[in-house]
Design a protein around this nucleic acid. Sequence first.
DNA 1: TTGAAAGCGCTAACAG
DNA 2: CTGTTAGCGCTTTCAA
Lengths: 343, 343
Amino acid sequence: MAQDPRIDTRRPLTLRDVSEASGVSEMTVSRVLRSRGDVSQATREKVLTAARNLGYVPNKIAGALASQRVNLVAVVIPSLSNMVYPEVMTGISQILEHTGLQPVVGVTHYLPEREESVLYEMLSWRPSGVILAGLEHTDAARAMLENAGIPIVEAMDVDGVAVDSAVGISHRRAGMKMAEAILAAGYTRIGFLGTMMPYDHRARKRLEGLEEGLAAAGITLADREFYSGGSALLKGREMTEAILARSPDLDFIYYSNDMIGAGGLLYCLEKGIDVPNSLGLAGFNGVELLQGLPRRLATMDACRLEIGRTSAQIIAGIHPNGLIGGERIELTPKLEMGDTIRR
Amino acid sequence: MAQDPRIDTRRPLTLRDVSEASGVSEMTVSRVLRSRGDVSQATREKVLTAARNLGYVPNKIAGALASQRVNLVAVVIPSLSNMVYPEVMTGISQILEHTGLQPVVGVTHYLPEREESVLYEMLSWRPSGVILAGLEHTDAARAMLENAGIPIVEAMDVDGVAVDSAVGISHRRAGMKMAEAILAAGYTRIGFLGTMMPYDHRARKRLEGLEEGLAAAGITLADREFYSGGSALLKGREMTEAILARSPDLDFIYYSNDMIGAGGLLYCLEKGIDVPNSLGLAGFNGVELLQGLPRRLATMDACRLEIGRTSAQIIAGIHPNGLIGGERIELTPKLEMGDTIRR
DNA sequence: TTGAAAGCGCTAACAG
DNA sequence: CTGTTAGCGCTTTCAA
């Protein structure tokens, strides 16, 4: 039960309290608690016992100010609710766990101004590094990053100019690769379905890549549609129904993500549409969810885990290839044909 | 404009730099940057201009140490990858956005020791409050929370003893309520399927509530099975197949979450099982995903958004009912019958 | 192996 | 409205 805040004189414990309780100088207490320098076994135990008994929790604010070192890594991502960024986070955590660094997450909801303010807020805590999604930022955000004097990794995308390091895939190339696969399978009337995200640059680049790939074969996108908000699975259904009603002769639909693709797939199966023969489908991301669907949706793995891991390695300065920043690391997404592209 | 990087010794900028550049005292610069106290318009503009030109980002570490105030709220949750906690986060963010407080997320992967260490790490930054999931913690974690001297909200669950405030639903009662609905619909051979999470206390409590509710009608659970890891949707399929193979006479399956429930539903539909007449199904959580499924899975809304909002309001001291901590707030989950329980 | 002194960059409290 | 002083709790540095 919390004490009544009015009579709660509880001053948070300080190093001095531990020092007095143990009869050891503050400095030595500090050494013990950080395992720095040589301290005799006897002293160490006195200190540890006192600290534990008091329930002392070090004040990292003071520690950081004094040492000019902060074990925090700022991670700035657009969203937590669509499965893709949590997996990047997982990769980051896996690496940072062994380094004494801690990720701190900020969410932008795909809004550039929000990214800017989240970044400002995080930089004001002087983190050891920043990992953020994408290469597109406001001018002010970019300036902050350039002036921060810490390693910056722009993750997920390599199509553009990075402030410092970039780790990701080329979404443009991913779109082109999909175009090639679609064409190779003999589809010619291709539609695109995406959630309407004015600032989802990566989805936009995939679409551009797709169009470029199709253009090389003299084909233009037959139809496209964008929606926003709501359940992605449901939107996938609705959009698929809508686009097929409007363009019944489509023989392929490329979805900007797996969730709406899954919705589309479920819709098609219910309607008895012959997938993949009369209609081919493909999504993007390679999310785990797809494994439980009645049929395996074609997709492309976005290398999320690897991106997270590599980004964290660069920040922590422990990349196996000795990368130290300023690099552009392009990973290659794997196309998974699944059961929704005919062969 | 950024300074010339060649003469950039990369000392981070301080208030003093802004002070010198603007010809205004550090204290007044500080006032302007925090919008505290009265500062003349002329001075304010001089300061703002200088700060912007230099690209100054305040050092919150120093600020926090001096003011003994930290605008951070520690949020400690088991996972980011299963849709439920992100929605709690959304509720928290919605409220905190208007308060100057910022959530900082820590993930425990359902491991008590990890929760303890994450908590320790976060408390060492002296946050203004803590929101964490559930009422079960290690003794050490509980002690830390009790000694922190800040508001603590244990969210998601109210079945137990809270350190300070508790906001959530009774999972035990949720299980009982589901038992009643199942019995009322005339099902009698009931199975339970859950992911094996030794520390998912809330799933455990729902199961206990279910069994208690069934027991009141003299019925015992006919079968149960637990799996762990992998794609929840896929696991739902596999587990459903397995349990039906072993107990073909089951007429109802209660899933510990919607994802495995959705997998089960897809499996049953494919196999041509008559849902809900020969087999009823229900999940838990009320996730958005269900809206896109071929049939609406029965579920129970876990009030995630509301839990997040209420928790944040308590921490921020802005709860509409004037709650200030030490309360137990039980929300009531709504049963959604969907299309998978016969009526 | 231990301790003392001097800040880290900022803000509270007061004085002007 | 603006400036001065004295720390916040810790770590660095140097001395013992």
